[in-house]
Write a protein that binds this DNA or RNA. Structure first.
Length: 653
RNA sequence: GCCGGCAUAGCUCAGCUGGUAGAGCAGCUGAUUCGUAAUCAGCAGGUCGCCGGUUCAAGUCCGGCUGCCGGCUCCA
């Protein structure tokens, strides 16, 4: 007999080998029993069929429990594979895990799946789900499993099993549902009937094991939830994401474009987008000057020799554009700004008294990115980094990194981002510099994060070739994350370029270099901003803050006066004096997401006032132009400072 | 780069099984002078992404290229 402690603290004695499902079912109503899907044994999720062999604490997991969502999705992946095998027996299965938003399964098929196939597969899944086929776990000797999958002609499973065998595994677990058997660690739901709210989303190619030298498989993505309502909500969210796509909004609001005649991944900033960029840049520069940075400007090309010395030709050449010959010397377009900043540092002797040197530049770089990876503003070939390099002494490193972290979080907050994930990336396989240096740099970053009390995750092996880094991935309002900010410590370039400063001791020392970008690139950050706000930028960023609109052409004279006053007060305004109905003018301004519309009729002309309307549809009492200017400026400032009052929420009339 | 899909007017899209292109919006002209999400009428606008092939005939079928979309891989 063994002792089993239940959820309520009560301990009972059961026969050794009793299944946990049996233990938990005791005392449950029939209805509850139907909803029992998994068990937690000593904190780990297990199948209900799991046999208790020793004293343990157990608790039930019911249909709908958040912690079982991953299991549900994993089981849904198996259900999909079962359906695919039922419809297309010759298809070979690879792997099928649960992922953050759902699940996928990779298949090898001579004929790629079409969208029609997806609905067929989905239909089959529903059929199999209705049958509530039991999902059973089996343990098997690894050699036996290998011959089983060989016999089933499932080479990918065989490959996985052989790897497991090499790692010393002797037994593996398989899951069977009907005639479908899959190699799997589990756990799984007790039967296919528990998988009811799911949807297959799309097919895409994916390399076997993520290796582009291996064969391309067909991956089907899907998602699953415990109930139809949650599924509906998720699908609505995907729809919302599509609605907010920066590429769509960028075209609608005339912010930017990418033209085939110019080239892929090359951005044209149209007047409205360029204005937003100017506002971003002004804020960025002012903030840097306030924090002791100096501004730099550097060229777009440099001699090939420079890139050789910096190591970029060794570690980055596949991302660099081909050299061009000028006066018998080869030049290359810059993929990074660092060597230029270093050249400025090295233009004369440096003293420890000058350090830290904080140099920033909105530096435009060009990187060759493979065509398939380009994506609107998010992944481009020419972009402007909000770059900076801090040169400091070792004892200044901690405080400099803390300072940078502070600044990053402040800037992100001003732009409206409060949620982000932080990663500390450690040494990659391909690297330069001594182990000692790597450790020192990694520790400095870690200490900075910890002293700020920030929660972070380690991203092993994801550092740059010259040093470890902190990456901050910001989350937009749909919780999608985008990597923007990056802080990288570098002991390598100072060495390569013989950078030195004279210390207090009169001796030469190598400075430490920190690379950092807060927004990442103006292009990507702009893309994120567009999606985050769905094009309705906060007032301080809006390219047009107010539009003056008339009801008839009797108001044109007053409209021009109002417009001039707004402009004189530094407000970005325009006018709509067209011979159109007010409703149409309002509608268009609304679609352009202009924060304020100033309606002018005969009454306003007589009183020398304006009647503001917000993009949220609230109309305000008529007020003088001066009052409106005051109102707009106050609200713009409140929004910029992250205040809760936004004009859309105010109730002034 | 790889797998799959797509490419028709400035934009969003129709165009069945091949018989030399259509709508709405935008634009232009005119009428209308109107109070918070679309006034009416008229006009104009396209070598159907590019190159080649099949055919009496190609937007439609086939091949190549370019670009875009969904992923893989990679990254700011």
């Amino acid at each position: 007999m063994i002792k089993v402690t239940l959820d309520d603290g009560q301990a009972i004695e059961v026969e050794k080998g009793t299944s946990v499902g049996q233990v938990l079912s005791e005392g449950l109503s029939k209805k509850q029993r139907k909803r029992l899907i998994l068990a937690k044994v000593n904190g780990d999720l297990k199948d209900l069929g799991y046999k208790l062999e020793a004293d343990s604490s157990v608790s039930p997991v019911f249909l709908g429990d958040e912690e079982a969502l991953e299991v549900l999705r994993h089981s849904a992946a198996h259900l999909m594979a079962q359906a695919v095998k039922a419809l297309y027996p010759d298809v070979q299965v690879a792997i099928g895990p649960a992922i953050e938003q759902g699940f996928y399964y990779d298949f090898n098929t001579p004929e790629p799946f079409s969208p029609e196939d997806l609905s067929k597969i989905e239909k089959k899944m529903k059929e199999l789900s209705k049958k509530a086929i039991p999902i059973e776990r089996m343990e098997m000797d690894i050699d036996e499993a290998i011959s089983l999958f060989k016999q089933k002609d499932e080479p990918y499973k065989v490959e996985l099993l052989e790897e497991l065998k090499d790692q010393g595994e002797e037994k593996v677990s398989l899951y069977r549902q009907g005639d479908f058997v899959d190699l799997c660690r589990g756990p799984h739901l007790p039967d296919t009937g528990k998988i009811s709210a799911f949807k297959l989303l799309n097919v895409a190619g994916a390399f076997w094991k993520g290796d582009e030298n291996r064969e391309m498989l067909q991956r089907i993505y899907g998602t699953a939830f415990f109930d139809k309502k949650k599924l509906r909500e998720h699908l609505d969210r995907l729809e919302e994401a599509r609605r907010r796509d920066h590429r769509k909004i960028g075209k609608e609001l005339e912010l930017f474009s990418i033209e085939e005649s110019i080239g892929p991944g090359l951005i044209l900033w149209h007047p409205k987008g360029a204005l937003v960029r100017k506002i971003m840049e002004d804020f960025w520069r002012d903030e840097h000057l306030k924090r002791g940075y100096s501004l730099l400007f550097t060229p777009h090309i440099a001699k090939r020799e420079l890139w050789k010395r910096s190591g970029h030709l060794d570690f980055y050449s596949e991302n660099m554009y081909a050299p061009m010959q000028i006066d018998d010397v080869e030049y290359q377009i810059k993929p990074m700004n660092c060597p230029f900043h270093i050249a400025i540092y090295n233009s004369r002797k440096r003293s420890y008294r000058e350090l830290p040197l904080r140099w920033c530049e909105l530096g435009t770089v060009y990187r060759y990115e493979r065509t398939g990876t380009l994506h609107g503003l998010m992944r481009v070939r020419g972009f402007t980094q909000d770059d900076a390099h801090v040169f400091c002494m070792p004892e200044q490193l901690d405080s400099e990194i803390i300072e940078i972290l502070d600044m990053t979080l402040y800037m992100l907050q001003v732009f409206g981002f409060q949620k982000y994930d932080i990663y500390l990336s450690t040494r990659p396989e391909k690297y330069v510099g001594s182990d000692e240096h790597w450790e020192l740099a990694t520790n400095a970053l870690r200490r900075a994060l910890e002293s700020k009390g920030l929660h972070y995750e380690i991203d092993p092996g994801e550092g740059v070739f010259y040093g470890p880094k902190i990456d901050i991935k910001i989350k937009d309002c749909l919780d999608r994350s985008w990597q923007c900010s990056t802080i990288q410590v570098d002991f390598n370039l100072p060495e390569r370029f013989d950078m030195t400063y004279t210390g207090e001791d009169g001796q030469k020392h190598a400075p430490i270099m920190v690379h950092r970008a807060l927004l990442g690139s103006l292009e990507r950050f702009f893309g994120v901003l567009i999606e985050h706000y769905a094009g309705a930028f906060p007032i301080w960023l809006s390219p047009v803050q107010a539009r003056v609109m008339t009801i008839t052409d009797r108001q044109n004279q007053w409209a021009r006066e109002v417009f001039e006053t707004l402009r004189a007060n530094g407000i970005r305004a325009d006018m709509d004096l067209r011979n159109e109905k007010l409703g149409k003018k309002v509608r268009e301004a609304q679609l352009e997401k202009i924060p304020f519309m100033l309606v002018l009729g005969d009454q306003e002309v007589a009183d020398r006032t304006v009647s503001p309307r917000t993009r949220r549809g609230e109309t305000m009492e008529a007020m003088s132009v001066e009052q409106f200017v005051e109102l707009l400026k106050r609200q713009a400032q409140e929004e910029k400072m992250g205040g809760v009052t936004s004009p859309e929420n105010s109730k002034q009339g």
